[in-house]
């Protein structure tokens, strides 16, 4: 199976119909295992039980960036390789990415609450994620603003790629801006210093969330393909029946005028 096979929407629908239940099943199992392990993980000596938010927060933060990566590749697919399903993939990924980013923000602010005393701190990491969230919303607004999906696709692809180049620059600027104003960030969770009892559940959760994204993404792509089919069927209906009713409408008006004339 290659990308070429997937280029045909009908084949894509048939194939994913078989894959999707397995993927969903694997997601549920891994999520259950991950959550169980997270519950068993010991409390942090400084942060107490709140550290467990990390098991949700980190996978969401990871996916918030990963999804933009997926959309960037799909955008290349739209602009360079003209892969017919690329813009479907890009469009379907945006709301899911926005949702993961939102969850990363939400869990981040809940996590920060006991430490900062406020729900929101202009912490460098959270702020970067907030900007990423805004860019997701902007992208979704762009998809919504244009009625014709193929026209919206190119604009969205350009914006996605520009975003992919700009995101590191934004991240760097925000870090610099943040250190300018406050010397040390409260949240410092270097991956390498993590204890193994944290690391394994975190990895399981990260994989589980990635599978969750794959499941949701494929399901959303299927919806988008079907939505576009409905759209083209509607357009065909608008034009096709018009031709066949052209003559009948004309004669109906003719009859009506004859009756009126007789009256």
């Amino acid at each position: 199976m290659t990308l070429i096979d997937l280029a045909n929407p009908t084949r894509f629908l048939a194939l994913t119909a078989r894959v999707l239940p397995w993927l969903a099943g694997a997601t549920v199992i891994l999520l259950a295992v991950g959550l169980y392990q997270s519950a068993l993980a010991p409390d942090d000596y400084q942060q107490g039980a709140t550290v467990k938010i990390m098991f949700i927060h980190v996978p969401n933060a990871w996916l918030s960036m990963f999804v933009w990566g997926v959309m960037s590749i799909a955008s290349l697919g739209t602009l360079v390789w003209r892969h017919p399903l690329a813009d479907v993939a890009a469009k379907a990924a945006a709301p899911i990415g926005a949702a993961f980013t939102f969850l990363a923000l939400l869990t981040g602010s809940l996590w920060g609450r006991p430490m900062w005393g406020t729900y929101w701190e202009w912490d460098a990491r959270l702020t970067s994620v907030l900007i990423l969230f805004l860019m997701y919303l902007g992208l979704m607004a762009l998809w919504r603003a244009v009625d014709d999906p193929s026209r919206a696709a190119r604009a969205a692809a350009v914006l996605t790629l520009v975003g992919a180049i700009n995101l590191p620059i934004i991240k760097f600027s925000v870090d610099w801006w943040n250190t300018l104003h406050q010397p040390a960030s409260v949240m410092r969770m270097g991956g390498s210093t993590l204890d193994k009892s944290f690391l394994i559940p975190l990895l399981v959760m990260a994989i589980a969330f990635t599978l969750l994204f794959a499941t949701l993404h494929i399901a959303a792509m299927r919806n988008e393909i079907l939505r576009r089919r409905v759209r083209s069927l509607q357009m065909m209906q608008a034009s096709r029946v018009a031709f066949s009713s052209e003559s009948s409408a004309g004669s109906r008006a003719e009859n009506a005028s004859n009756e009126a004339g007789a009256a």
């Binding site: 202009w122 907030l130 805004l134 919303l137 607004a141 801006w177 943040n178 104003h181 406050q182």
Partner: peptide, 21 residues
């Protein structure tokens, strides 16, 4: 889009005045 604009303007402010709560 108006709400999104509102959100963006508000988010821009701390970058200009600094993150002092």
């Amino acid at each position: 889009i108006g709400v999104l604009f509102f959100l963006t303007v508000v988010v821009l402010m701390p970058f200009a005045v600094g993150p002092d709560l």
